[in-house]
């Protein structure tokens, strides 16, 4: 019998380039308070957001993804034809067919890569990172581009103040390359499908609803074990972590997780939600790029990331910052 041959994989994968796109329009809490029954104080105390970015008509999912992906490619110093896998994480496509991964790859001049969209809600970036890293390790891709992009304002009910003040738009991207020294740890992932409707766009509806209390409880009680698992699988302890960048859903969840993990002042904690709102699958690369730009985090730092959201889904890993 003929034996199926496999390709030779790499010992590890690492992030070699990071890029972001923040929409031009900055929306403050005071601006929202003029349009709905809310206030700066209410929003800051409930979710910790001071301002967020809302995409204009021309800042489409494709355009934002191309912008962030192009920056990540430029930062990596890699030529487009060196990329052979593109995974685009998004939960806000208005039309499910076609996925936009192939179009984004085409626009970036990447010739005929494996390309797909992945919807794991706000956990999409970490799921994509895990799959892309594994593809490189398996030899199915030499280098990969992972993009998280959202226009959540397209699926937000602007008369529902519990979600309208939270959700926002943006894109972030990373280029992954094969490396002898692993720069991305094993993924720790899971799901709680019994809570499938805690965050949903119900059939026939065009906007998202969220059971805030249920999601908050889930995020602050169940996800610590996934974070611990991600560290254990990578063989690192909490004392080794330089940067903690969980999905930017709510500042209070970020603080609760930080407290439960026992991270002190020596760990840099991402709080990009204050400036960016909740950008779902884009929030982690946006938060990492903000920390690197401000100098709070530096190249070579060990970061713990965790995405979690609709599904309900969760995924996290330890990674070395580019």
């Amino acid at each position: 019998m003929t034996r199926i041959q496999l390709r030779k994989g790499a010992p590890g994968a690492r992030i070699v380039g990071l890029g972001d796109y923040r929409p031009r329009r900055r929306v403050t809490n005071d601006e929202l308070a003029q349009a709905m029954d809310t206030s700066d104080e209410w929003i800051r105390s409930r979710v910790g957001i001071a301002e967020r970015r809302w995409a204009a008509e021309d800042e489409t999912l494709v355009e934002m993804a191309v912008a962030a992906g192009g920056k990540a490619l430029a930062a990596s110093g890699m030529a487009p034809d060196e990329i052979d896998l593109v995974i685009l994480a998004s939960a806000s496509l208005r039309a499910p067919i076609p996925g936009i991964g192939p179009q984004v790859a085409y626009r970036l001049g990447i010739p005929r890569p494996g390309a797909l969209d992945l919807n794991a809600g706000c956990a999409g970036f970490c799921y994509s990172l895990g799959l892309a890293s594994d593809a490189i390790r398996a030899g199915d891709a030499r280098n990969a581009l992972v993009i998280g992009v959202e226009r959540l304002t397209d699926v937000t009910d602007m008369s529902d103040r519990s979600t309208a003040v939270i959700f926002a738009d943006g894109a972030g991207a990373v280029v992954l390359a094969a490396s002898d020294e692993p720069g991305i740890g094993p993924v720790a992932w899971g799901s709680d499908g019994d809570q499938f409707n805690a965050i949903e766009i119900a059939a026939g509806s065009s906007t998202m609803t969220m059971a805030g209390q249920a999601v908050y409880r889930w995020a602050t009680t169940k996800l610590t074990e996934t974070l611990v698992e991600a560290m254990e699988r990578a063989g690192v302890g909490p004392g080794d972590i330089d940067v903690f960048a969980p999905h930017q859903a709510n500042l209070r969840i970020v603080e609760q997780m930080t407290k439960k993990l026992g991270f002190g002042d020596d760990v840099v904690v991402a709080r990009d939600i204050v400036r960016s709102g909740n950008t779902s699958a884009a929030s982690i690369p946006l938060a990492l790029s903000a920390l690197l730009e401000s100098g709070e985090a530096k190249s070579g730092d060990l970061a713990l990331v965790l995405g979690y959201g609709a599904g309900l889904t969760v995924a996290g890993q330890v990674l070395v910052l580019p």
Binding site: R46, A211, G212, Q213, A214, Y216, R217, T220, T221, N250
Partner: peptide, 26 residues
Amino acid sequence: VDSLSMVEIATAVEDKFGVAIPDDEL
């Protein structure tokens, strides 16, 4: 006490008194 602090109170009550408070009861 806001709605998210109510969740924190519920989980603390669960731990302290050994009772379950589901979200719909909360």
